[in-house]
Write a protein that binds this DNA or RNA. Structure first.
Lengths: 363, 363
DNA sequence: CTGAAAGCGCTTACAG
DNA sequence: CTGAAAGCGCTTACAG
């Protein structure tokens, strides 16, 4: 009986890693049997399967997905890349995707590209190198068709959300931006507004171009002559709206209503208008776009266009999963129909200005 | 010369995948040389290296990280798991982590656990199975020490942010919540407030407990007797603040000031107060916590406590990377010193109520 | 129902 | 400066 034995603690960093063969040896079985058993194959006798699983548990076995994936060339990984996941608009899409993917045991790798093509390309490369099974992305501004094709040609199916890329034929889902913005502007026109500005966005994204087109179309349909100074371009976030406020207030005559590129822009604009001494929903009507969660509790509550983020996320995830299972799925973009949500911010009752306003409307 | 040749298009899904050996054969070299060359090893002659890289580019070679990782047991993956990345507080931490990790060529896998232990455990398992190099997490409520130890014992070093887990000795970084909340409350007391409520949070997270402790400590130091009805617990988000507003307004006498669990809670509360007809920063002083970006443009601009999210993220990422490189790093939690940011929401000039307020203060 | 053997695509000593 | 060979830990035909 040996003396001077150094007792190794349970936490031994030098301990051999447990692998299939460790379990197989311990039980006098082959790795093939162990592998099958752990994946619940009916080829393995129930009793054997249980012994194997018990041994795996007891020994602290950790399945090595890299090894499995190398062999099977399936990784269980889905890459998801958007402009900025901290933006609630994308956040709501991601939440829906996550919910859908979760039940299928897929691992979900997220990335922001911040509209930097290099970042997006690095992400695509990473997905390729990790052997991701598929990818959902809201493409960065200026994404070349070649980047999407690179993925597709290397067995990495792509589904687009929120934006499109010219020249690629892959499934895509987003709201009907032109139609949605038209709904918003028509709502204001019905309420009697004739001087309607549009704040936020630029002409770089397909989304912004579509929304602007809807805005212009609604004006035209109502025979309202568009004034270039009404189009206040700017960042597509809260800050962009905030910064637009002083520029808007400087306009003369002051528009009586504003549609915004997004809810975030509208919320920022309302902060800015308040600072300028104007009360949104009283002195000036404000409409957002997206119907993010905050729209309802904002004060005044935000009139906006529900853009179907959850549906976009859900459909995109399902479409990708279906494609991975070999189903035939429609290529091309599917538009989600937007809905107007009327709340308080689009009200207008400028007690102090009313008279002048009325006069100038007929000027 | 053969006739009837079927031309294969460039886009051939059946094309053999290009691997190291494909390049090696094409160039009459060994895979060892190709492997070294692609990783810029000085062991390979410059000219050979260039030929190899050119061939890799031309053939559309995609590096197989699973294979490499299986061999080297390094994956280049860092897992990051927080309660909810759409929350700007975590968003700002994540942004800082990302910035730090990016320059080191690490792939960043993100996950929300939504304070669900099962989700968090699934994430840890996934990281283990993918052979992640390390992990940064803001642990879910009730995280057992065993979950962290499981990771650590299987070669997955963990760094904590924002929250702590009792019974584990790993590096952690977060703001000094008790001190920060004390700063906030002392600011209000200095301005003459004696009835100060605290809105949002519960006693489930270490963060909330610390902040509440700071609140109570500041009251006690000023000889103000705490009234239980001043502590309005609730969700740690915008909605939680919004919902607290009616409960707050129902208090009699009405507190003249409120500190909130977070900026999000404060912003929601301000929305709610406005609906109740109270103007934050005039009829009632409001203070937030975190100093998220929106605090500055909110109207009224939000007085708050800068909680060092960026520093937390940066330090956590650096600490983890240092540890991965074998450096000795301090275990245990490092507190970031918070700073008060005085803006408009903590002002108080209740013109209509002034007289009664003054009276009741001396009651 | 179980096992022996090959192979996924890399990297790493080791040899020359 | 370059190559032959082993091996990372799985899964998958195939055989029995």
């Amino acid at each position: 009986m040996p003396t001077n034995v150094v007792s190794t603690s349970g936490r031994n960093p030098l301990a051999q890693k447990v692998k299939l063969s460790t379990i197989a040896e311990a039980l006098g079985l082959s790795t093939a049997t162990v592998s099958l058993a752990l994946r619940d194959s009916p080829l393995v006798a129930e009793a054997t399967r249980e012994r194997i699983k018990e041994e795996a548990r007891a020994s602290g076995y950790i399945y090595n997905r890299r090894a499995a994936s190398l062999r099977t060339s399936k990784s269980g990984i889905i890459g998801v890349c958007v402009h900025d996941m901290m933006n609630p608009f994308y956040g709501e899409i991601l939440t829906a995707i996550e919910r859908e993917l979760d039940r299928q045991q897929h691992t979900f790798i997220l990335c922001n590209h911040y509209d930097q093509l290099a970042k997006q390309r690095a992400f695509i490369d990473t997905m390729l190198q990790l052997g991701a099974d598929g990818m959902i992305m809201s493409p960065a501004i200026g994404t070349p068709a070649a980047d999407i094709r690179l993925a597709e040609e290397n067995d990495l199916p792509v589904t687009l959300v929120a934006r499109t890329v010219d020249g690629v034929e892959v499934p895509g889902f987003h709201g009907d931006d032109r139609r949605g913005m038209r709904l918003a502007v028509e709502h204001l026109i019905e309420k009697g507004h004739r001087r309607i500005a549009m704040v936020g966005g630029d002409d770089l994204t397909s989304t912004a171009r579509e929304r602007e087109a809807g805005y212009l179309a609604a004006l035209e349909a109502a025979d309202i002559e568009f004034k270039p100074e009404w189009r206040l371009k700017g960042a597509r976030n809260r800050h962009g709206g905030f910064e637009a406020a002083p520029r808007l207030v400087a306009l003369s005559p002051l528009p009586t209503a504003v549609v915004c590129y997004s809810d975030l822009v509208a919320l920022g604009l309302m902060y800015g208008l308040s600072r300028a001494g104007l009360t949104p929903g009283e002195d000036i009507a404000v409409v957002g776009y997206d119907d993010i969660e905050e729209a309802e509790i904002a004060t005044p509550s935000l009139t906006t266009v529900a853009n179907g983020q959850s549906e976009v996320g859900r459909l995109a995830a399902r479409s990708l999963l279906a494609r991975l299972q070999g189903e035939d799925i429609p290529l091309g973009t599917q538009l989600i129909t937007p809905t107007l949500r009327i709340r308080s911010s689009s009200e207008y009752r400028p007690f102090t200005l009313q008279r002048t306003e009325a006069a100038s409307r007929h000027a």
